[in-house]
Write a protein that binds this DNA or RNA. Structure first.
Lengths: 347, 347
DNA sequence: GTGAAAGCGCTAACAG
DNA sequence: CTGTTAGCGCTTTCAC
């Protein structure tokens, strides 16, 4: 019940400087962990900061010579389970670095998208930008950002012909590993539901991994067993219905993300196919979805939280400047759920 | 292939003023839609702004007398399907208002939480703060924020004894409506899995709605048919197993959110109960989860996106100042999925 | 209607 | 090691 009407008298760096008997520069140095401050002075300043409850204004810090303490996270039409852990990782890294995260959901495409992003960048002047799929594989966007000289990290499976910093994991070998696991269980007719449409300019790593393993096992994939669901549950239903209601349907289906695998479970139910008895279903990402559907999905664990964390970390460490091409590769893991089963040993 | 090494010469309000032959004040007025600018002048300024590709620096705008153009969205240990649409709604409203959204995931509890939030508020000086569950029902936090004189909106079902602005929908009557629908289908033994634990200081509106409808129908609810899953899939499994494996299990179970309903589907499968034949399952929220599990859940559609949108809107309209108690009530809707079925007419 | 000038709170040379 | 002094880019009185 403290004076409820107290005007929120903002306390500034001047107040701290005066109270501590030092100049504002010194306070600023302490704030920025400048090692060139005598420990004794530092402690004294720190003490008054605490005593006064002082908190530096982030906007003022960004003006003048100061570097902005903002990280921008950009996404577009996101698969929620993909973007949220990344965001969380980014927030976690920001917190420990006295930075804040500004999240933007882009709306446009083509030149309008570029303008939209430049608008954000120019207004915010962030320390760096984290680009997630599908923004992270747009060469024009990357190029525009490079011209603006902004640090950026792409969270993206596939490299582009440019040196932008990137965090990723080897989706191609993960896709192959998953496919091999199905083959080892006795599956021969394996369907694949891609996320990226056939003619997409970017290489589809997941699908390539699938193709690698099938080829290596000498298995053919009829065209009818390949389709695309654009990574979204709703859009996956129709192609799945088509694929699974053919005369000779696959005994296993590999979906390029968990959302589409959830759709496969639904379609299987519609067609009275028991999973995994009649049909094995595997996903990709080990997102929240994979854990809560019944049966729990066999999938590839993608370290999304770490990816967000690492992306921001690269920015903070200066490994994401326009002239740098740092890359960080993270490990993946095959997670065995209950959506897959071996095939009875026959032909 | 424009001069790739061009230093990103920032263009400022001075550049615009000079090019347009006006003072910086006028440019500022145009930027802020001050009606006191002659239309002709405005157009001319707007034209040069476009021509120069000028974008005001948000940090500089926040200093001095300027009002911050930031909205802070705070959450803690979120149910991802609850928080993401709210965030999206908030972003959408911000975009149209020349504001930006800063997202924060709080870590602490008790006094540390309050310090954490005050830290954010003092550093960012946002135009307003959006508090989501469970932060939005913490009286101490609300009180601390009020002392700081910050605008805030609570996204919260239950009112507190304070006049903080709030956006919500009537969870109690929604819970009752859902329960009545089950009763109308012939169910008599209906279980309830709450999100909030029994002794929680905040009223549990969903559970109350359930109780209302059961009472009104003259139905008893044995203690064994009431439990709590804390809104999270993982935590819901154990209580569901207990409840559903009793001798006389409920024929329908009402889960306080969709994530827990997904858990009910899983437990039902474990126990060889077919849904909805042997057990009807209903959720709450109509989140993404409800739409992608099999069978699709019967649930209550909560307008989460709108809630985020409205929350920011209230801040922008000045309806969320510490002395105001505006409330906005949004409609809900019962969504019929495939997880419920009527009971054969017997006793 | 419009402009000149004074900040906003902080960081960054540049001295000492 | 520390303080003085300019700004940073914008908004806002207060005049005209």
């Amino acid at each position: 019940m403290k004076s409820p009407a107290t005007p929120p008298k903002k306390i500034t760096i001047y107040d701290v400087a005066r109270a501590a008997g030092v100049g504002t520069t010194t306070v600023s140095r302490v704030l920025n962990n400048d090692p060139a401050v005598k420990p004794q002075t530092r402690d004294s300043v720190l003490a008054t900061i605490t005593a006064l409850g002082y908190r530096p204004n982030i906007a003022a810090r960004s003006t003048g010579g100061g570097k902005s303490r903002w990280i921008a996270l950009l996404y577009q039409n996101p698969v929620i389970h993909y973007i949220h852990p990344i965001q969380q990782g980014a927030i976690d890294r920001c917190r420990d670095a006295d930075h804040m995260l500004s999240v933007h959901s882009c709306q446009n495409t083509g030149q309008a998208l570029i303008d939209e992003v430049l608008d954000i960048v120019d207004q915010l002047q962030p320390s760096g930008v984290v680009l997630t799929l599908p923004l992270s594989i747009s060469p024009k966007l990357i190029q525009a950002l490079r011209e603006r000289q902004v640090s950026l990290v792409r969270v993206a499976p596939a490299g582009l012909n440019d040196p932008a910093a990137r965090v990723y994991f080897d989706e191609r070998s993960a896709g192959a590993a998953m496919t091999r696991a199905l083959i080892a269980q006795g599956h021969r007719r394996i369907g694949f539901l891609a996320g990226l449409p056939e003619g997409h300019p970017q290489p589809d790593e997941r699908r390539q991994g699938f193709a690698d393993a099938m080829l290596e096992a000498g298995l053919k994939v009829p065209a009818a067993h390949m389709s695309c669901g654009s990574f979204h549950f709703d859009e996956a239903l129709a192609p799945l219905r088509t694929m699974l209601s053919r005369k000779q349907p696959p005994t296993a289906i590999f979906c390029a993300n968990d959302d589409m695998a959830a759709a496969a479970l639904q379609v299987a139910a519609e067609l009275n196919l028991a999973v995994p008895r009649d049909l094995s279903v595997v996903g990709f990402d080990d997102s929240y979805i994979a854990r809560i559907v019944t049966p729990r999905l066999t999938t590839i664990r993608q370290p999304l939280h770490e990816m967000g964390w690492e992306a921001v970390d690269m920015i903070l460490r200066g490994q994401a400047t326009p002239d740098m091409g740092y890359q960080r590769v993270l490990p993946y893991q095959l997670v065995e759920g209950r959506s897959t089963a071996g095939l009875p040993a026959e032909g």
